[in-house]
Design a protein around this nucleic acid. Structure first.
Length: 468
RNA sequence: GGCCCCAUCGUCUAGAGGCCUAGGACAGGACCCUCUCAAGGUUCAGACACGGGUUCGAAUCCCGUUGGGGCUACCA
């Protein structure tokens, strides 16, 4: 390990937001690439957010994504004395002052927003309900050195006197953030672009606290992740909980790979790549500054690629939860060997694990659910479907061996006798047995289903066709 | 409103002054392969926001405009 230290510092909100997950991933990639240290710090200075279960959710999501940390989790709620000491020092030295203005007072005096400095020179002491504000300089400028955007210059005069201690004495995140990054000797801060405008305040705070500007971290403000309306992904209107993606059938490796593509890519244009390669090739200079759209279609594609690349037994294992928990068939009907027989074909046809039950349901349902459109298109509109189904039933019943090649041959023969190519001949049988016009290869499906059930379903279709 | 960020196909991007007739991937169209659907292959369509500079030469550098976004809490 060298001196490079990065941190992922989420506020516990109940779940890990995909934007936060992306920030965590980039910090992790950078730490692993450089041989630095990855620190996990929970920013729970707001008492309402300081709950163990919320923290556990974050840890669970990080582990799911395969991100491990070297230090922490530190909890700001357990480091409050440090922030209190820092605030004390600032107040004593006159770098901060107490303020008893209410929100309404401020709004009445300055409707355009921002604090007007009313209490700046009133010499108020600490007291109940009095917030502590940082005295920002009226001249000069503060420069944020950003590896992704270059230097960003802020005029100090544009910075308002912001609150660092609330009326109740609790520190604001910006104070805790400044103290902790300095105290933990963080060298690189990779976080969302939405924090860019608060960075000069953090820097001012650090310097007022006596930390050498030469030790300021190098920042890297990651592009925001936006929805189709180009707005920052929000809890209210978008699907942002990482855990939800797991529940929707995305593989962690795929999620991680896709997240890495949001604002970064290796020079050679590769997209699907093992995590070891991402670590090897991750460079801050390659991170894009422009906003990235969270494209579920692309995510689906990446996930499908990962699913297809899985060894079959792994795919079977990963798909099991979707087959065993709340399946669309009577649970006792499920048979692992039957699923394993068709798994290689299923694997190639799904984009998420949650799609698996829908592809194999006909194997475990007592009766297939015949889709009306499929019945119409695949059976009713087919010339003499009844005759074809009857012939197939006869041929299948006579088969000496119930296997895919034998079924293939038999079906081919039944079709040829009627001048039909296999593509046409298989359609009514597929609908009769699976209820759909699409699905895994028919003959492998029939093999897995078994002769008895196959014939039963063909007979049922015949009966349905003959009844008015 | 103020401060700040961003700007290449619908989307993610390649592009660091001539290699660009702007390349790839996802999504979309067509065709091939094929027992259906997938997968795979071939292929079509599709972009440098606009205006000024700088330069022999600009998608690439500078300025402005426009557009989008973020922040503007005693949340983080």
């Amino acid at each position: 390990m060298n001196d490079i230290r990065v941190r992922f510092a989420p506020a516990p909100t109940g779940f890990l937001h995909v934007g936060s997950a992306r920030a965590a991933l980039f910090n992790w990639l950078f730490a692993r690439h450089t041989g630095g240290t990855f620190v996990l710090r929970i920013e729970d200075t707001d008492p309402e957010r300081s709950r163990d279960d919320l923290v556990e959710g974050i840890e669970r999501s990080l582990k799911w994504l395969g991100l491990d940390w070297d230090e922490g989790p530190y909890r700001q709620s357990q480091r409050m004395h440090l922030y209190a000491a820092a605030a004390d020092r600032l107040a004593t030295e006159g770098a901060a002052y107490y303020c008893d203005c209410t929100k309404d007072d401020i709004a009445a005096r300055k409707p355009t927003g921002g604090y007007d400095g009313f209490c700046r020179d009133r010499g108020l002491g600490p007291g109940p309900g009095r917030a502590l504000r940082f005295r920002t300089p009226h001249q000069g400028e503060t420069v944020v050195h950003d590896a992704i955007r270059g230097d960003v210059v802020f005029e100090n005069a544009n910075l308002e006197d912001f609150v660092i201690l609330r009326g109740g004495g609790e520190p604001m995140f910006i104070l805790a953030n400044a103290v902790d990054d300095a105290d933990m000797r963080i060298t690189h801060v990779l976080r969302g672009e939405d924090l860019l405008s608060s960075t000069p305040k953090v820097l001012l705070l650090r310097h007022a606290l006596g930390y050498d500007p030469a030790d300021d971290p190098l920042y890297g403000h990651l592009p925001v992740i936006v929805n189709e309306k180009r707005q920052k992904l929000s809890k209210r209107r978008d699907d942002v909980a990482l855990e939800e993606f797991r529940e929707r059938g995305y593989l962690p490796e795929a999620m991680r790979n896709y997240l890495a593509l949001l604002g970064w890519g290796p020079g050679d244009g590769r997209e699907i790549m093992p995590v070891a390669d991402m670590v090897a090739e991750f460079r801050l200079e390659d991170v894009k500054p422009s906003p990235a759209f969270f494209d579920v279609q692309k995510l689906d594609h990446v996930n499908a690629e990962y699913i297809r690349a899985l060894p079959v037994h792994t795919f079977v294992r990963d798909a099991l939860p979707w087959l065993e928990e709340d399946p669309p068939w009577p649970p006792e009907n499920f048979d692992l060997a039957t699923f394993e027989a068709v798994a290689p074909f299923v694997q190639e046809r799904v984009r998420t694990l949650s799609e698996v039950p829908g592809v194999v349901d006909f194997l475990f349902l007592d009766e297939p659910v015949i889709e009306p459109d499929a019945w119409e298109k695949g059976v009713v509109k087919v010339k003499d479907a009844a005759g074809l189904l009857a012939d197939a039933a006869t041929a299948y019943a006579a088969l000496p061996e119930w296997s895919a090649p034998a079924l293939h041959q038999a079906t081919l023969a039944v079709g040829e006798a009627r001048g039909l190519k296999l593509g046409k001949a298989q359609a009514p049988i597929r609908v009769a047995v699976t209820g759909r016009t699409v699905g895994p290869p028919l003959f492998e499906s029939l093999t897995a289903l078994g002769r008895e059930r196959t014939l039963g379903r063909v007979d049922a279709a015949l009966a349905r066709l003959n009844s008015p």
